[in-house]
Design a protein around this nucleic acid. Sequence first.
DNA 1: AGGATAACTGAACGTCCGTTCAGATTACAA
DNA 2: TTGTAATCTGAACGGACGTTCAGTTATCCT
Lengths: 194, 194
Amino acid sequence: MPRDIQLTEKIRLLRQFWRLEHRAPTYAEMLDLFGYKSKNAVFGLLQKLEEAGYLSKDGHGRITFLPRLTGTVRILGSIAAGFPTQEEEQETEAITLDEYLVKNPDNTFMLTVRGDSMIDAGIMPGDIVLVEKGPKPNQNDIVVARVDEEWTLKYYVRDNAGVRLEPANPKYKFIRPIRSLEIGGIVRAVIRKY
Amino acid sequence: MPRDIQLTEKIRLLRQFWRLEHRAPTYAEMLDLFGYKSKNAVFGLLQKLEEAGYLSKDGHGRITFLPRLTGTVRILGSIAAGFPTQEEEQETEAITLDEYLVKNPDNTFMLTVRGDSMIDAGIMPGDIVLVEKGPKPNQNDIVVARVDEEWTLKYYVRDNAGVRLEPANPKYKFIRPIRSLEIGGIVRAVIRKY
DNA sequence: AGGATAACTGAACGTCCGTTCAGATTACAA
DNA sequence: TTGTAATCTGAACGGACGTTCAGTTATCCT
């Protein structure tokens, strides 16, 4: 199928343009991008892409790229299924990590972990945590808490005596705040980059 | 400073629009968005935002949002520094997780980890790994490898006898591939979502 | 209160954009 | 080879877009 492969290549070019410019290209730019000489050729291509679910247009013809184009990562079900071949790749759904990981962007921060107090929870020194500021923590949430003038990561546990902060490392003991307990936020995700 | 707070609110609205539409709004849309009655008011605001580094315009006046607007997560240096107050929040730099984590989007896939063979490396069952397909692994890279008809995560180690695949769990022994070694890709990041 | 500066209104302008249409070219099947 | 459908070219059109300007209103400082 030579036509489908060419379409795949055009989709790749659109993804690339999006990554560079953070917007959809205009018709004039797509002339260069695809090597067409008529805007009507672009128009036809866009119609096909719209039907295929890659983009949508509003009432004035403005283009909005859908997740299949803006997403940076293709999803594979499980590690056991193996890796996709060249043909399979194109059909797999794509996702944006930001939308996947950050539910409340206005209150979400990223910070680097120091210390090994949560190492048994798989949070190692140097890891990055996404912290949501604001909501009240639930039982066993991992929180950023201020204890003795220092900020650390701990499990948030409610018990009969009140609230205690529990590490995930047998080297350390849990902490029960005496006067005040300041919660910076709740850990929503952990990220490790190699 | 009431003016700065209002500017902050407008920036928040732009972020929100971006999140919904995945594009910059037009002048007409910004009239509604900000409650202005003249496009010139929008024009002035955009000039200030351009000078402040929130967006840029090309030769035809088209707007491109810069990372400070498109980014979903604000960066905090270290956990020890504490949490920002309302005023500090606005000045902190923002980042896009996709750009931060995915260098080569066309060849990057996301899959879920099964098994505990890499648990001492902080990779737990249920975690998500971002895998880049294609490049040759370096010493001690974590790779997705096919061994005995099954795909697993292992350290990739070159030694005098050739290549061996080493787990990060004393329960398991390393594996030395006899005939063929199939590498699905290299693990570039680990993500855990709560 | 007064005077200067910044911010906003309203209208107008030129350009670029997406769309459309007739005709040419290519691709494919019989 | 011939016929049919799909694709592309080239030109034209109307509308929306970003920009500009003169004039008004609001804001700030002394």
